[in-house]
Design a protein around this nucleic acid. Structure first.
Length: 593
RNA sequence: GCGCCUGUAGCUCAGUGGAUAGAGCACUUGCCUCCGGAGCAAGGGGCCACAGGUUCAAAUCCUGUCAGGCGCACCA
């Protein structure tokens, strides 16, 4: 398999490094990781490396001298790869490839198609990705939506990087919150039948509770009025959580987010797994009794204090369930567990890290991605949400308003751990101000181009058949270099669990495409007169009009069949990359808009 | 009080220890006679919160200060 250019450059430097090491020209002990990246300014070359500077202190030579030595080696041994190699203070190695080298990027995209950007760096390692995991006590709100968008994007990123990913939703269907749900629904149920009720003070106030209660009234009539309130409330909790979970599943499905596994907390209880986990910790003396309660000794693993897992009354804390759940995950044979959590849960990180260590796994086995809050804006105004009063904007409402594509894109526009301002008006705007449309439009615009080409009987060539010289002009080369970055962007965002890098990349590529497309014709003109002039000929014409003062100079470029072919072939690869990137984010790449 | 996260252009935010810190929005000035203007070009705008330190090199790492957010339950 052909290697991407940047890695070819790294390898070239590595070869030179080991030659100078063996020849004794440089006294290198350990070869550092060679960092090669596109320089900030294009005039500095195609790639740049700071390796000489990192090496300088080790070999006790001035950086410039080290760089010169490496440059000489690269020029001598890799003249087929590099057009020229420059050394610049304070010790940068600036590398410029022979332009035709870049064409292999286009060939690779053409060959790999939708697989361009995939890799095997994951080596098939198994990852359990747990996300959303909202309690089935209400509909998903926008915050959950952000977690959902993030989770599905991370899952796709990891899969395309060669990891084996299983997506899981942990259902908190046991415990106090559910009890509270039952009591809330039961109270509304009694109200429905005109009976006195005591609505729990910290209960769920949202209107959806009434809807659930009415549905219970419909299916169960007045039968629950006679039961003991305990029994009735438990039944209400069960019915309500089932209904709400169904609703959650529906919302996620319309959002395009799927899970392999829905893991029920109750199943841990009924299978006795919590007891089992705690027993195991007891044996390891990591769970000890004090003041009648059982404490998990998380402080042994860096938590600031120990935590109660089993209360004085014998019941379990939520931590006990989480301990059992995470042990479960570990025992299912995953190499890495990733949890996506709301940022307000950050305080629990140390105790979960303690948990995995208590069961003999490295702390790094667990990776936690924290997601910060989303604040919605309409126009300039912030939309206030009060969780207390049960007034929050649901994910469903946002999807209905702006569509799933825009919602996902907006959720993925920022780093997960920073607050997100989500402008609803902007998200549904059909203009270049809206980044979703901007990127999707780039894809659709190209699709349209190819359609028109086909209508006009212009064939869409493959890279191998077009004139290379026409592909490596400055503007084309700029696009190609951006396309070449794509696999590296995917790799780094997968490893960092940061899909927003892909979002940024796509905006950049789309911008470059629009600029290119705006400036350069691709298809021949329908009016053959226009194509008879010489290349780049300037035609003057007056803007007829009342003022009549202004003369515009417009450049009409004559399009030869070869040029058309080259540009079509290039743009086809641009379209592929935009499509690949969007699909990684779970966003559609439309042919028409 | 302790812990975690965040302070970068007027606003919203990018920026795996590297060169002259970037993008979008907003603002100003322009661009449609042919492939989708749902687009493009140009311009102004910055003690990277502050102060020390590490380094050949700091927006980035360390320490402290200030400001904002969030956590600190035998609640989930």
């Amino acid at each position: 398999m052909e290697k991407i250019l940047q890695n070819q450059v790294i390898e070239a430097i590595a070869v030179i490094l080991s030659t100078v090491k063996e020849s004794g020209e440089l006294r290198v002990d350990t070869i550092p990781t060679i960092v090669v990246e596109p320089p900030k300014r294009p005039e500095w070359g195609d790639f740049s490396s700071s390796v000489a500077m990192t090496l300088a202190s080790q070999v006790r030579q001035p950086p410039l001298k080290v760089a010169e030595l490496l440059a000489a080696g690269l020029r001598a041994q890799f003249s087929d790869l590099f057009d020229h190699v420059n050394v610049v203070p304070p010790g940068f190695l600036n590398l410029t490839l022979h332009p035709p080298r870049w064409i292999q990027v286009l060939r690779m995209i053409q060959d790999k198609g939708s697989l361009y950007g995939t890799s095997h760096i994951g080596k098939g390692k198994r990852i359990l990705l747990e996300f959303v995991s909202a309690n089935p006590t209400g509909p998903l709100h926008v915050g959950h939506g952000r977690g959902a968008a993030l989770g599905q994007a991370i899952a796709r990123l990891l899969k395309s990087s060669g990891f084996s990913v299983s997506r899981e939703y942990y259902i908190n269907d046991a415990g106090r919150q559910l009890q509270l749900l039952g009591r809330s629904v039961h109270a509304r149920y009694r109200e429905h039948w005109g009976k006195p009720s005591s609505f729990p003070e910290d209960g769920y106030h949202g209107d959806y509770i009434k809807i659930v209660a009415e549905s219970v009234a419909k299916t169960h009539g007045q039968t629950l009025l006679d039961d003991s309130s305990d029994k009735a409330e438990t039944l209400c909790a069960q019915l309500a959580s089932q209904m709400l979970l169904d609703r959650i599943k529906e919302d996620l499905a319309t959002f395009g987010v799927e899970f392999e596994t829905w893991f029920s907390e109750t199943s841990l209880h009924t299978a006795g797994l919590i007891q089992q986990s705690l027993d195991e910790l007891r044996q390891k003396r990591l769970l000890i009794e004090e003041e009648g309660a059982w404490w998990f000794r998380s402080s042994q693993f860096g938590d600031e204090k120990d935590r109660v897992a089993q209360k004085q009354d014998g019941s379990y804390t939520y931590l006990a369930a989480d301990i059992a759940y995470h042990q479960q995950k570990l025992e299912r044979g995953f190499d890495t567990l990733i949890n996506i959590w709301g940022a307000d849960h950050h305080g629990y990180i140390p105790r979960m890290e303690a948990t995995v260590q208590a069961f003999g796994f490295a702390k790094e086995t667990l990776r936690i991605v924290l997601v910060q809050m989303v604040s919605l804006r309409r126009g300039g105004q912030k939309i206030e949400m009060s969780k207390r009063a049960g007034e929050f904007v649901t994910l469903r409402e946002v999807i209905d308003e702006v569509g799933p594509d825009a919602a996902k894109f907006f959720f993925l526009m920022r780093r997960a751990d920073t607050h997100l301002d989500f402008d609803l008006d902007l998200a549904k705007q059909h203009s270049s101000d809206n980044p979703v449309y901007y990127v999707q439009y780039a894809h659709a615009r190209l699709a349209s181009l190819f359609r028109v080409a086909q209508e006009r009987q212009v064939r869409l060539p493959v890279i191998q058949d077009v004139d290379q010289v026409l592909l490596i002009q400055d503007e084309e080369l700029g696009l190609i270099k951006t396309l070449a970055q794509y696999p590296l962007v995917i790799e780094s965002s997968a490893l960092a669990l940061e899909p927003h890098r892909v979002t940024f990349y796509l905006q950049e590529l789309a911008a470059q495409l629009h600029a290119y497309y705006n400036k350069n014709r691709v298809l021949p003109s329908l009016d053959p007169e226009r194509d008879t002039g010489g290349t780049g000929e300037n035609i003057k014409f007056g803007t007829s009009g009342n003022t009549g003062a202004l003369n515009q100079e417009l450049r009409y470029e004559s399009i030869s069949p070869d040029l058309t072919a080259a540009r079509l072939a290039l743009l086809r690869q641009v379209q592929t990359v935009i499509g690949n990137g969007l699909s990684l984010l779970g966003i559609s790449a439309p042919e028409k808009m």
